[in-house]
Amino acid sequence: MENQANFNSIIRTVHSISTTTFTPQVDSYYESQNGMLHYEVEVPGVRRGHIRVVLGYSPLLRHKSITMWGVSIAPQWPNASLLLSQGDTLGSVPVPRPLVGAGLSSGQSHQPSPNPTIVPSTVVPIVGTIDRPLQRMMEQVHGEFYRLLNVPAKTQVSDINVILAYSVLSIRIKCDEPLTANEIQATQEIIEVH
């Protein structure tokens, strides 16, 4: 209960500083050898105490999903040091690492998509001394984030493993056997476009 109160306090504080809400980027793949569905969610700078992962039913779509909700705190925000220390169980800021995608061996880097989303960087000059000029570049998105991920209908909490490391939230879900091509075709119906 104390963790939930702490999380709510952090959310309220971030709302008072920033109105930014963003959707984290996700890579997903299925491993047929062990029946695991993998979600790799990019959450730069997020601490364990700053994120909630919940398995439940979508009220509108009425199917099971994983809801992720949390905050990424920018280091230059007021009270950032206080916010970064609350709920932190790692003790230090995770160091970013390159993502290793499905089918890539370690050491090979993840290839960007052909049509990447362009996010303009912002360089904010800060007045410094002549011998020590300062500048700050902000490319990462900070603020509140939210993401809904689909899961198989029979998924239980015991089927899910969640790890936050190196600014990536890794979610592993044990799945039943996927439908065969014939079973998929039998469930499809064409909808007429008017």
Results as ranks from 00 to 15, higher is better:
40 E>S: 03
81 S>E: 07
179 L>M: 14
62 R>I: 06
143 G>H: 02
175 C>V: 08
49 G>D: 01
135 Q>I: 10
115 N>M: 05
93 V>R: 00
79 N>D: 11
138 M>Q: 13
84 L>Y: 09
14 V>G: 02
65 S>T: 08
97 R>I: 09
153 A>H: 13
128 G>R: 04
174 K>V: 10
122 T>R: 07
60 L>P: 02
128 G>E: 04
136 R>A: 13
45 G>S: 03
67 T>I: 11
168 V>Y: 03
99 L>R: 12
65 S>L: 07
61 L>E: 10
114 P>L: 00
114 P>Q: 01
50 H>S: 00
158 S>P: 08
159 D>K: 10
10 I>H: 05
163 I>G: 09
60 L>C: 12
41 V>T: 03
180 T>R: 01
167 S>G: 06
72 S>W: 02
43 V>Y: 01
117 T>Y: 10
149 L>N: 07
57 Y>G: 01
62 R>C: 03
35 G>L: 02
106 S>G: 11
115 N>C: 09
95 V>W: 05
109 S>V: 06
156 Q>E: 09
162 V>P: 15
8 N>T: 13
76 Q>Y: 13
135 Q>R: 08
118 I>V: 11
105 S>M: 15
116 P>L: 05
165 A>I: 12
176 D>M: 14
7 F>N: 05
125 P>C: 11
70 G>V: 05
74 A>E: 14
132 R>C: 02
34 N>L: 14
19 T>R: 14
43 V>K: 00
139 E>P: 06
170 S>M: 14
81 S>M: 12
47 R>V: 01
154 K>M: 10
70 G>R: 13
74 A>M: 14
172 R>S: 03
